[in-house]
């Protein structure tokens, strides 16, 4: 167990690699109750969400979820978030644990009394059931027709007798569900899911596997790939950024940055010589520093050393041969296309 943003969190149960591969091949269950929830409701709720985020929340229907970013005036990321539209004027925003209070204050401080903003983190346990067998494991426990819940959609229903928000979302690059329920029901729900998945090889999975899974899929982790100084244009999140949206905080800065061009870009690296690139290690080109690693690991699925990092825009070309300085040694690497891992058949459903 480690402490993480005030929560006691399991890094691993039976081992990061075993848990990681279970999620890729069968299924894994994560307790991600540390994630924060901020709810925005009332007549001004949509406007407030639109003003504070980069993506177009108006396109999100009730029952739908959207990956999005809270931006500051300079276009830097306050946080990356998932917005669930519970009702036309009621949004649930899932935020990073360590940012919960920052985000809550950020949103409430800009509500101008036109929407109600509440930190409801303590009202939810969040369990993530992820992997190719997720639907098969979950279906017998619920009356919801899970096949009808498309990626980035959700429904409310009972799972093993506990009322849940059941969303087809996740942070692993696999199919799967995230379940939000009353904390009183959390432990029983966890046990029911583990029991239901036993024959299918469901394994409990910890923060360690969560990190390696998201990294293979090149999902950003706040504090690594994203922070208050990184913009979505630099972070490869232009698809989340609707500059056509008339007005949102940070828009002007992004329009300017887009016109002038970004100075750095987030890239994928694969080590071509033995070694593992870790956060903050310098990236070099012919001996000259061109950037820094933000996350790196040994990929359990690909059995290669992979990393994400920022390099100067001119060097951000797939195939470019570079070096990573690992404890004083320069180790060869090359830039590769992202994501590192894409599940088979993913094109059909997402």
């Amino acid at each position: 167990m480690v402490e993480f943003a005030g929560w006691e969190m399991p890094v691993q149960y039976r081992g990061v690699i075993e848990e990681h591969l279970a999620v890729r091949r069968r299924a894994g269950l994560f307790d991600v109750s540390h994630m924060g929830e901020v709810e925005v409701s009332g007549a001004g709720a949509l406007d407030l969400c639109q003003t504070l985020t980069a993506n177009d929340v108006a396109r999100v229907q009730v029952g739908q979820a959207q990956y999005n970013l809270l931006l500051n005036e300079s276009g830097g990321a306050v946080d990356d978030i998932v917005v669930y539209r519970l009702e036309s004027d009621h949004f649930l925003i899932c935020v990073n644990a360590a940012n919960t209070d920052k985000d809550f204050q950020w949103i409430r401080g800009r509500s101008e009394g036109k929407a109600e903003v509440r930190d409801t983190s303590s009202r939810y346990v969040q369990l993530a059931l992820q992997g190719p067998l997720a639907e098969q494991i979950l279906q017998p426990l619920t009356g919801l027709a899970l096949g009808q819940i498309k990626p980035f959609h959700f429904s409310f229903g009972e799972v093993s007798g506990a009322r849940c928000l059941v969303a087809r979302t996740g942070y692993t690059g696999e199919d799967g569900f995230e379940l939000y329920c009353d904390p009183e029901r959390g432990e029983a729900l966890w046990n029911s899911l583990m029991e239901a998945g036993r024959d299918g090889g469901l394994q409990p999975a910890g923060l360690g596997a969560r990190d390696t899974l998201r990294l293979e899929k090149a999902y950003p982790l706040y504090g690594h790939e994203l922070d208050d100084t990184t913009t979505p244009l630099e972070a490869g999140l232009e698809w989340v950024t609707r500059l056509s949206k008339v007005c949102f905080l940070g828009r002007e800065a992004l329009v300017r940055q887009k016109r002038e061009g970004v100075a750095r870009r987030l890239v994928g690296l694969e080590m071509t010589a033995p070694g593992i690139a870790r956060a903050d290690y310098p990236i070099l080109k012919e001996g000259e520093p061109i950037g820094r690693v933000t996350s790196g690991t040994r990929s359990p699925t690909l059995e290669k050393s992979i990393a994400l990092g920022y390099v100067s825009a001119a060097e951000a070309v797939v195939g470019n041969g570079v070096e990573v300085e690992i404890r004083g040694r320069r180790v060869a690497a090359r830039l590769v296309a992202l994501p590192f891992y894409r599940r088979e058949g993913a094109g059909k459903t997402s």
């Binding site: 982790l221 504090g223 690594h224």
Partner: peptide, 9 residues
């Protein structure tokens, strides 16, 4: 907890 989580998630 012997490690403090410097990562945010």
């Amino acid at each position: 907890g012997e490690e403090s989580g410097e990562e945010e998630e």
